[in-house]
Amino acid sequence: MSVADLPKVELHLHHEGAAPPAFVRQLAFEKKMDISKVFNAEGGYAFQDFVHFLSVYEAATSVLKTPEDYARLTRAVLEESAENGVVYTESFISPDFCGGGDVAAWKDYLAAIKEAADQAETDFGIILRGVVTCVRHFGPEKAKASALCAAETAGDWVVGFGMGGDEGQGHQGDFAYAFDMAREAKLQLTTHAGEFGGPSSVREAIDDLNVSRIGHGVRAIEDRALIEEIVARQITLEVCPGSNVVLGLYPNFESHPIKRLRDVGVKVTVSTDDPPFFATTMRREYEMLHQAFGWDADDFAELNTTAAHAAFCDDETRQRVLKKLERT
């Protein structure tokens, strides 16, 4: 079995960002919407840099208007993930896109997503759990509405709360109220940091939001004391190497710090972030890491076990995931 064929756990996947371009084009056609500018000549998503990526992401997301649209999206995303060997995934889902932050509307969207996820588990064997996210560049007040949606639906399926968006807008601490609401609802916490925000944003995430996982977090490698604290606190990084390379943080996989982070004891995991935007899959991430660092099946098994233990799901689900990771 090649490393690309191994069963995989993915912890950092944006629900809309995983939408296949053909799926988005089909929805736009059905709704008579012209979003041709979000695609390149080859039919993929087109963007120049991170800020432009965010605007293209939101333009593509604009075709998703109903709970049924999200049900169809969920099935398309999970079928693609399962084809890449993913047995468990946590997807970032934002009430801002699913009902505009209204709790009643959010519940309708969530019910449709969960029904599709349950059917996909039956059909493809993949388990999905939801991490509700606020969007940083939408501001702290909208984050509170997202946190309320998360708190009202917290349980065995909605298992976490986090934040994505433009790291250049405000500070992590500006969103402490929303994160406190989620924490009181017994949701586990993650936030994007240490991507474009640098190591200081990771420090803010730890000090001001007290998260147990950090999305990306790779810029922490630039601060030795911060690395020591991450190791001591056993904080897990949701690392997305292909995304980091495409967006220009690092020129190639060989220069990516995931190996250095792992070598000094940081708990790292591997994810795709927004796979069709970055022309990647979980299979490709594994193949590229194998080529760059010589990681073998045992290395990836350890990474996946780390991810399973860092997952926000309940223990019964975790045991099912660990069972799926066993190699025969």
Rank of each mutant, 00 (worst) to 15 (best):
F293S: 06
N40R: 06
E222M: 12
A297M: 06
T317N: 04
H290D: 13
L247S: 05
K65F: 06
D273E: 09
D263I: 10
M288P: 00
C240Y: 01
T269F: 08
E152H: 12
F161N: 00
R320V: 11
R129S: 14
G197M: 05
G125Y: 11
T269M: 10
F23K: 15
A279W: 08
I127L: 08
K65C: 13
E10T: 14
G139L: 14
S55I: 15
A116C: 12
E228M: 10
I35R: 02
F39I: 15
D207C: 08
H137W: 07
V321K: 02
T281E: 06
A22Q: 14
I214D: 01
K31A: 14
L128W: 04
L322P: 01
G17S: 13
M282V: 13
V77F: 11
Q172F: 03
H290G: 07
L27Y: 04
F293Y: 06
I227S: 02
V86E: 04
E285L: 09
V268C: 09
G170A: 14
G43R: 10
G294S: 09
I127K: 15
E79S: 14
L73N: 01
R318D: 04
G43F: 12
N84P: 09
I258T: 00
L237T: 01
D263R: 13
E121A: 15
P21L: 13
E302M: 05
C240H: 00
E58R: 12
W157M: 06
L261V: 03
I214C: 08
E42Q: 12
E30Y: 15
G130V: 12
A154H: 05
A60E: 01
L289I: 05
A307D: 00
L322E: 11
A182D: 00
H171P: 00
H52V: 08
A143G: 14
D180R: 07
H171C: 11
V87C: 12
E167A: 13
S201A: 07
A154C: 05
V264W: 02
I235S: 03
S36F: 12
R75N: 14
F39R: 11
G130W: 03
P20M: 14
G44M: 05
W157K: 03
R219P: 01
G130P: 00
S62K: 09
A46W: 02
A28R: 10
F161L: 13
L27E: 04
A185G: 04
D274I: 10
V63S: 03
A292G: 05
L73R: 01
L325N: 01
L78E: 02
L148Y: 02
Y70M: 12
D123I: 06
S2Q: 10
W295C: 06
F23L: 13
A76E: 15
A182Q: 02
T272H: 01
L209S: 02
S201F: 07
A307C: 07
S200V: 15
